[in-house]
Design a binder for these strands. Structure first.
Length: 350
DNA sequence: TAGGCCATCTGGTCCT
DNA sequence: AGGACCAGATGGCCTA
């Protein structure tokens, strides 16, 4: 019987996770003879690799055995009388041997699983020190690695004095080669820059950058209280992230609570500042500084009616108040937008 | 529904 | 011999 038969079997019984292949292999164990295709037929849709795999699996023996068998068959096919095969005789696949093989395979699978978990844990650690981190909106593995590479690159530029963390160039370096959604995530995250004053306090309390000290009140790291607006249910940025944002322009927050610097701190879980459109009938008190102009990263965002809208309103004292108009937004989306509008309000009225 | 991402299984290879 | 590492294959889940 040839590969075609095998292929048909494989198609009718696709193997999946958790030992399906092994089960299939066991169930096909009786096909040892069938594998030595006499008719030489080759099934085109199935890759050579796959066929080899199946063959290997069915045999549950090592390469040497297969090569030896194939050699033997080739010789027999030629019909010539050949000297007897040298070397150790092929071991028979006894039931005990099958069980040993299976047990070894199960152990190896478990090791491989735990190895991959370790790798994923390391990737998670990496995600946590990236300029944007969200438990709910996790960066993919490849994007995490790309962002890490960009981040190192961007920071080294900053250290060399050729780049300011506030500049558009810094952002562009961070987003270099990233997908659009990830770029949006990074841009949105950096818009949430907290007051440097607070960062300083954090560093102080946490025992320096990235310190693991714990502050007194494990609540939101900061909040901006605005009459008429609901209390933001947003999460917090981790201290490690706050440090990245130090270069951003100060905004006046009333710090009403403290921040845990340790890993126990609940990281910001929201979608990290969705694209925002601004509307409103108001005039700026002054032209935005070059810094502020440079921080207009929202130009990357596609316009969509699904995005939250920030509206600028004139307050009774002549101050502008930016508000989120879309109250129908998901809670976390609203929260992150609320943070941005709060910052904008503070910035504008500064 | 196609495509992206992921977890898992697996056999091969290298090293101890 | 057994473990670590690697890469291919596969199916599940999610999203646009």
């Amino acid at each position: 019987m040839g590969c075609g038969f095998l292929q048909a079997r494989m198609m009718t019984k696709p193997y999946g996770k958790a030992g399906d292949v092994s089960q299939l292999v066991s169930s096909l164990g009786w096909m040892d003879e069938d594998l030595s295709s006499q008719d030489g037929e080759v099934a085109p849709p199935m890759s050579h690799y796959k066929l080899t795999r199946i063959a290997l699996g069915v045999r549950e023996v090592d390469n040497k055995d297969i090569e030896e068998e194939e050699l033997e068959e080739d010789e027999n096919q030629g019909g010539e009388k050949v000297p007897k095969r040298r070397g150790p005789k092929k071991k028979k696949m006894t039931k005990a041997r099958q069980e040993r093989f299976r047990a070894r395979r199960v152990k190896a699978n478990a090791r491989e699983r735990s190895r991959m978990h370790g790798l994923n844990d390391a990737l998670d650690s990496l995600r946590r020190v990236m300029p944007c981190y969200s438990k709910t909106q996790k960066l993919s593995k490849i994007e995490t690695l790309r962002l890490a590479r960009n981040y190192i690159w961007a920071l080294s530029e900053v250290l060399e004095g050729g780049q300011s963390p506030e500049s558009r160039g810094f952002m562009e370096m961070l987003c270099n080669g990233l997908s659009q959604p990830t770029s949006n995530l990074v841009a949105g995250c950096l818009q949430l820059g907290p007051a440097p004053g607070m960062v300083d306090r954090l560093e102080e309390k946490c025992g320096g950058p990235g310190g693991a000290g714990v502050l007194e009140q494990p609540e939101h790291p900061f909040s901006y209280t605005s009459p008429g607006l609901p209390s933001p249910p947003y999460g917090s940025l981790e201290a490690t992230h706050l440090l990245h944002l130090k270069g951003f322009k100060a905004v006046t927050y009333e710090k009403v609570s403290s921040h845990e610097c340790s890993s126990a701190t609940p990281p910001y879980d929201g979608p990290l500042t969705p694209p925002l459109s601004i509307s409103g009938n108001f005039s700026l008190k002054q032209e935005p500084s070059s810094h502020e102009a440079e921080r207009n990263y929202t130009s990357n965002y596609p316009t969509s009616q699904h995005y939250p809208v920030a509206t600028a309103l004139a307050g009774p004292d002549g101050h502008a108040v930016f508000q989120v108009s879309r109250y129908d937004l998901p809670l976390d989306s609203f929260a992150s937008t609320y943070m941005v509008t709060s910052q904008m309000t503070a910035l504008y009225n500064e």
